[in-house]
């Protein structure tokens, strides 16, 4: 009986440690960023530009960079992902959709740095030629590449929720003479819209949290971007680039602000997806 207890306590301890890590990551950022918050410079940071020569360290340009790259990536990726998921689970015929499904699953295993590497030598020169000015490293290029990176997240989530639509509904629609496209629009999508939303939010989380693509492709300029063909820096890339600097400088302190924003955004998105998911689960359970 004593070993029973002991093992149970050990397992509980492991779980507590795992929770502690999550809390510590936030705790460390808040504690180390505390002088900033009490100093009153914290909220100013979110609205000011980045002008080190005038000792103004605002992260507004990085916030704009993050939002525009992630938003644009999602806008590129969403329709294609929806098309792929529909092909995989509803519209496709023959062996090709299954192959596509496999490719998409494999894509989750491709290292981000390899995407970035290929992007620099394939995509960036293409964009440079097409735009005709600048280095080709811009919001647009980064968003395109990021769209490829986050597509599997959406496709897999979409096609999973498409396939979990009860078979009885599909047979009913078949028996009433629905074509595959009608089945998709009238039965499958209305039944799985929660899955669609969750997939989009998860993909948005991946896009906001990605460091390497933006770092390698977006050009990392600290000026406020004026168009999608301008270079920009994301919050994540900003952290990566500034860490090398002096630990006590105000420049460094901005990182805590970046970190806190990213952490809070992630947490909100996770809570949101859990809400949406929980509601749908409860619903299914009740109607079953």
């Amino acid at each position: 009986m004593r070993t029973e207890r002991l093992v149970q306590h050990l397992l509980g301890l492991a779980a507590a440690c795992s929770v502690a890590v999550t809390v510590l990551i936030f705790g460390f950022m808040v504690i180390l960023g505390l002088p900033l918050i009490t100093g009153g410079a914290f909220f100013q940071m979110f609205t000011s530009p980045w002008l080190p020569s005038q000792a103004v360290y605002g992260i507004a340009p990085m916030m704009v960079g993050t939002v525009s790259i992630a938003g644009l990536a999602l806008a590129f990726s969403f329709p294609v992902s929806l098309g792929c998921a529909a092909l995989i689970s509803v519209l496709g015929t023959g062996p090709l959709p299954a192959l596509l499904h496999r490719l998409v699953r494999f894509m989750t295993g491709i290292p981000t740095v390899v995407y970035g590497f290929a992007g620099i030598f394939v995509l960036v020169p293409m964009i440079r030629e097409w735009v005709g000015r600048g280095s080709g490293m811009c919001i647009f290029s980064a968003a395109l590449l990021l769209a490829v990176l986050v597509a599997p997240t959406m496709i897999l989530f979409f096609s999973d929720s498409f396939s979990s639509v009860p078979k009885a509904y599909l047979t009913a629609a078949d028996a009433l003479g629905a074509t595959p496209v009608q089945k998709l629009f009238h039965v499958v999508i209305p039944c799985s819209w929660r899955g669609l939303i969750t997939g989009v939010v998860l993909a948005l989380g991946r896009a906001l949290g990605d460091t390497l693509i933006a770092l390698m492709i977006a050009g990392n300029a600290t000026a406020m971007p004026g168009s999608v063909l301008d270079p920009a820096r994301t919050l994540t890339a900003h952290i990566a680039l500034v860490v090398a600097a002096d630990f006590d400088s105000l420049e460094f302190r901005t990182l805590f602000a970046c970190g806190i924003i990213l952490y809070v955004c992630t947490t909100l998105m996770v809570i949101f997806t859990r809400r949406v998911g929980a509601v749908s689960e409860r619903r299914l359970w009740r109607s079953a």
Binding site: T22, I25, T211, I239, L262, T267, M269, V270
Partner: peptide, 10 residues
């Protein structure tokens, strides 16, 4: 879930 969603850079 939050830990899984935190950007790796953080």
């Amino acid at each position: 879930d939050i830990l899984a969603g935190i950007p790796s850079i953080l």
